Structures are given as C-alpha cells and as structure tokens.
Amino acid sequence: MLELDAIESFYGQSQIMFGLSLNIREGEVVTLMGRNGMGKTTTVRAITGLTPARRGVIRFKGENITALPSYRIARRGIALVPEGRLISPNLTVKENLVATRSDGPSGAPRWTLARVWTQFPRLLERRDSMGNQLSGGEQQMLAIARALMTNPELLLLDEATEGLAPLIRQEIWQILAELKSEGLSILVIDKNIQALSKLADRHYIIEKGRIVWEGGSEALMSQHEIKNRYLGI
C-alpha cells in the first residue's frame, strides 16, 4: 500500500530524515514511535507532500508520489488526522465534515454524513456547534471523521490520543480497531504502547530521523532495553 525508500527530508538547510524506509501493507495497522523531535511528524509530512522529500522515493499502491503536491496525494486516497487537529473554528461540525467530503479514489464512498453520525453520535449531538466550541476529545473525533469523509484507502494519525481523557482514548482505539476490521490501512503515531501493541500489526521506532527498530507487537513488548533506550519507558 505504502512504501518509503531511503527518504531524506530537510527544513531549510537542516536535515531531519536520514535514509528512512518503512512500508505498510494493505489492511495493516502500523505504528511509528519515538521521542519528541525525532522525525515522526516530518515522516507524515513527507508522505502527504507537505514537506516533500529531497531524496528517496515514496510509493503509494505502486505509484511514485514523491514529488506530487499534497492535494493530488489526498485525491489518491491518503488522509491525515494532523497533530493539533486543526479544526476550522468558524465552521460548524457539519460544515467541517462536508467541506472535505469526497467519494474517494474508488468512486464508491463508504463514509457519508449518515455513517459519521452513527459512528460518532456525539458529533451528531454537536452538529451545529462551531469548531471552537468543542472539547479536545470532540475535536479529535471530528478530525478523524473529517479524514474519513474523504473515503481514504490509507489513514495517517499524528498523535492520535495526545492530551485526551482516558475514556476518549479508549473510544478512539475502539474506532481504529473497527476501521482495521474493515480493511483500512492505518499509520498511527502515539505514545500509548499498551494500546498500540493490541491494535497494530507492526511497529517502527524512529531516532533522529532513522528507523532503529521494527517488528511485531510480541517482539516489541519483550524488548525492554529498546523501549527504555528509544521510548523512555
């Protein structure tokens, strides 16, 4: 579904990513973990074309998308739930959702307003509220629903549950598990190793712009030295 091959990215003259490679197969949930400032968000920005890679290749469903502008990458079926949510504050919940609506690359949308209201009943209750009137948890639900309204084939979540109450976190993990059961490919950035180990198929750990470890959940949970060294646990 997605392949990053020896990606190098820069902010100005400062190099952030150094030959980073990872892949996501169709229907997989994959995590990207690491301490703050190690390149997780830059990886997402490279995938979505917001900070294009200067070297290396990014392929989505076999097509080279490395140099494409972000809007064309989105149209191919990649949706982002960004860090900080970036909800439009002067639009209502419903307006935030319909503003991004798309039939997706298949032309056969699975996500409609009706389905969003069913999956996210709190958003239905708040459909006429402005974006800046929502709680942090409600904004995160809206950010996920907004991404799903583009009917993506790959969903990227940057800091999926950061700063949220435990009950809201649990609800988000449940939603992601349901999306996985439907075959949606997902890349998750988060710090909750226990939840991620139950949800994800494979994990990558990034350190200073390089992948330093990859493996399955059972291997990750047994690697105490790796978790201490790179995740601060």
Rank of each mutant, 00 (worst) to 15 (best):
K227V: 11
R229Q: 15
I226L: 12
L148M: 13
K94D: 14
Y204A: 08
G37F: 02
R85F: 10
I206F: 06
S129E: 09
G216M: 06
R54E: 09
T92H: 13
L184R: 02
E159Q: 08
L68T: 01
D103Y: 00
V116A: 14
I87G: 06
L142E: 11
R101P: 00
M38S: 08
E214K: 13
A165L: 02
R101S: 13
L20W: 04
V44F: 15
V57K: 14
L4I: 13
I47L: 12
K40H: 10
F60A: 14
K94I: 13
S129W: 11
E214W: 08
I73D: 03
N96H: 07
D103P: 00
L86T: 07
G183M: 02
N90I: 10
K40F: 08
I233C: 02
N132A: 10
D190F: 00
V57Q: 12
R115I: 01
K40T: 05
G77R: 03
I24C: 15
T118M: 12
W213C: 06
S222G: 07
E159T: 00
L157E: 07
A67P: 00
A67E: 10
P109K: 13
N96S: 12
P121Y: 03
K227A: 11
G84A: 10
L4W: 07
L80V: 10
T41D: 07
K61P: 09
E3S: 14
Y71W: 10
Y71L: 03
R59A: 10
E63S: 11
M149S: 04
W117C: 05
E8M: 06
A108H: 14
G49L: 09
P152E: 02
A108V: 13
L199V: 04
D128P: 02
L50A: 15
I189M: 04
I193S: 05
A143E: 01
I211D: 01
E171G: 06
D103Q: 10
I144S: 09
A160W: 10
L184D: 04
L4Y: 03
F120V: 11
G84N: 12
K227F: 00
L187M: 13
R229L: 15
E171Q: 14
G232V: 01
I7Q: 03
R45M: 14
L91N: 09
R54C: 01
L2E: 11
L220G: 08
R126W: 05
S9Q: 03
L176N: 08
A145M: 07
E218F: 08
P52Y: 01
F18C: 08
R110S: 09
G49N: 12
G19M: 10
